[in-house]
Write a protein that binds this DNA or RNA. Structure first.
Length: 256
DNA sequence: ACGCTACCCTGGCCGC
DNA sequence: TGCGGCCAGGGTAGCG
């Protein structure tokens, strides 16, 4: 299940492979995977003849900025991989596996393929006259990025002091800090020696400082290794990350 | 308002 | 071996 480090790894790969190449069309094999617009024809029409000029990441969302031939903003392409979503960059002659949901065809027979077994993943095409958050509503509630200055120890102290939720649940709440899921919540809590069921408001200042440090440390360690191997995460070319080698807790319940 | 739960979905795993 | 039941798990809706 891709979390911030896996999504960041995908983003870096997309920026290396997909930029400034004309999109020649699209194909939606499962309409449910396209969250917006409702019309597949409109989706294909809007992306065609445009190019991706950059991929950005916000929490676990990927956002591609589209430009037309005249370098004017042509909209945004949003992707959320949820649990089993995967993006692959390959030659469009490659066989199309069963769980392929959306295909984007680029020049030189290259293709960006969205594959998603459990079909919770989504793709959005944000028209040029909208802001991404107007269409991708999940963006509105996201808290700060874990490496942004807004995500300070002081911020974390203030937010946690206001909550009676359990800390594990709170870390999964994207409005506290964006991008953490089950794996990195467990890793950060283990590293900072905090029990997951601890009530947020009961955490001491030293504990919160430890937690803040641990969140940044575990995410950074995983990003530097290109994501995790607990899940079926593969990078754009189908190669797995190797954070599993150094992870301490996730998937090892009772083995510590 | 807040915190929790059900729901979405499919493949893989477990027990019988 | 086959089948049914259960689990995963991010985000959202809806409940108390």
């Amino acid at each position: 299940m891709p979390e911030l480090p896996e999504v960041e790894t995908v983003r870096q790969g997309l920026n290396q492979l997909t930029l400034n190449q004309t999109i020649q069309g699209g194909e939606v094999l499962l309409s449910r995977s396209l969250a917006y617009p409702a019309s597949v024809a409109e989706f294909c029409q809007t992306i065609t003849n445009n190019r991706i000029v950059s991929w950005q990441r916000r929490g676990k969302y990927l956002l591609a900025q589209l430009q037309d031939k005249n370098h004017n903003l042509a909209g945004w392409l949003g992707v959320h991989l949820r649990m089993t979503g995967q993006l692959l960059w390959l030659n469009s002659q490659q066989p199309v596996p069963k769980h392929t949901r959306i295909r984007l065809f680029f020049e030189s027979q290259q293709e960006l393929r969205f594959i998603d077994t459990r079909t919770f993943g989504k793709m959005w095409l944000v028209p040029a006259n909208y802001k991404p958050a107007e269409i991708i509503t999940g963006l509105q509630k996201l808290g700060p990025e874990p490496f942004a200055s807004e995500f300070s120890v002081t911020y974390l102290e203030r937010k946690l002091s206001q909550s009676r939720a359990r800390i594990k649940n709170m870390l999964l709440n994207q409005s506290l800090v964006a991008g953490i899921g089950n794996i990195y919540a467990d890793e950060a809590l283990f590293t900072s020696r905090i029990r997951p069921e601890t009530i947020c408001a009961d955490l001491t200042k030293p504990q919160i400082k430890q937690l803040h440090q641990a969140i940044q440390a575990v995410l950074k360690a995983s990003i530097s290794r290109g994501g995790t191997t607990f899940s079926d995460f593969l990078n754009l070319l189908g190669i797995s990350g190797n954070y599993g080698d150094v992870a301490q807790v996730y998937g090892r319940e009772g083995k510590a």
